[in-house]
Design a protein around this nucleic acid. Sequence first.
DNA 1: ATATATTTTTAGATTTGTCTAAAATTTAGT
DNA 2: ACTAAATTTTAGACAAATCTAAAAATATAT
Lengths: 220, 220
Amino acid sequence: MLTYSEENYLKTIFHLSLGQKKGVSTNAIAAKIETKASSVTDMIKKLNEKQLIKYQKYQGVTLTAEGIMAAKMIVRKHRLWEVFLVEKLGFNWDEVHDVAEELEHIKSEKLINKLDAFLEYPTQDPHGDPIPNAKGEIKLVDKQLLSEIDINTKVVCVGVKDSSSEFLQYLDKHKISLGTVIEIVDIEPFDQSYTIGLHQHTITITKKIASNLYVKVISA
Amino acid sequence: MLTYSEENYLKTIFHLSLGQKKGVSTNAIAAKIETKASSVTDMIKKLNEKQLIKYQKYQGVTLTAEGIMAAKMIVRKHRLWEVFLVEKLGFNWDEVHDVAEELEHIKSEKLINKLDAFLEYPTQDPHGDPIPNAKGEIKLVDKQLLSEIDINTKVVCVGVKDSSSEFLQYLDKHKISLGTVIEIVDIEPFDQSYTIGLHQHTITITKKIASNLYVKVISA
DNA sequence: ATATATTTTTAGATTTGTCTAAAATTTAGT
DNA sequence: ACTAAATTTTAGACAAATCTAAAAATATAT
């Protein structure tokens, strides 16, 4: 049985290892969990003992198969609860993260599988992130960052890279949500700001915004 | 902010104090929480510091107004989650207690009030126990133990005193649930066993069973 | 290549909640 | 009322998870 804290470390290592091939560094984990590197080293030793990660001093960590599955189950729970909060309880997509951080630690396989059925087996959470199924399988969706798309292309918004409430509220303010069709009207060479066409209006967004929006091309 | 453990103590003291006028004893708390009396004393000191209970050495504890409200909010959460598990996720009433014990500690007032609305403001949980509203008000329902009812009376089952899965499964086996009409056909003087009429059949139950079923009289 | 900077680990301390064993207090029996 | 029994508290220890400060290892820069 994993503790609350062990689960958080596994989840964090899982997320960090997606972006890279090498082991995840102590400092990277510490930054994400907002704790000290020395605390991370302590926990790394525990997870290593439990065979959930592979660890060599000073060389970072990687998850074992067992560790990956445990991490996926936590991610599964987190994202299913997010769907529940938005779809059933009427939370906005910028309000669900912190509550889901708590709910993801509830220990009951039956609960999570019944919740999954109740929600009709969603494959994505409210931010467009994939939900692992009960076997840990993740259905990857074809998506690109808006910042990688050429001018005069029509795309649909399918996810966000940054799911902080600040960014999500920015999107709300500009009426951008999952499913919103976006047309890239212009890209300013000087600062790479994007002028994009939405339903009724046209707005200009910074490179930073474009680098945090996942889209799928509809037509060139 | 209360810890998980502090919340469990408050809830336990709340439940134990309902049955009596005097302060709740250390041993009673220890028995319910399944811990040692010395651990209880330690926690009592913390809760006293936080002004959630009134405490005098060797004299047991009583909750302060603030402590009562905190306890009621935990009970509220526990029972609302139980309703959710049964009504929405299809759990049986004997399966929900342990999961609700975890869910009751999720910290979000918004969550619990939205859950309350989603469930359409239930006033009772799956075992017939009252659910405190957002203000902490509890709607007491008129009920008696089946063991207190006279012969030749028709009653309806409205709750259970013991909500252990063993007892609930016994009731399931005999097709007794909330709303079941029960007619007291006979009471054996020797062992106070009850012969009761249900929908189609008649069964005999022990005094112990009758002492754990809450009913409401329909007619004499 | 070597000095410097950064990262990581170790050592030792702290907090929370628990425990055992012993001491203090209260309760109950005669 | 006095003694025995039960309850409650205290004292000291421990495990989990964290921290600070210092030491060790690795990475970087010229």
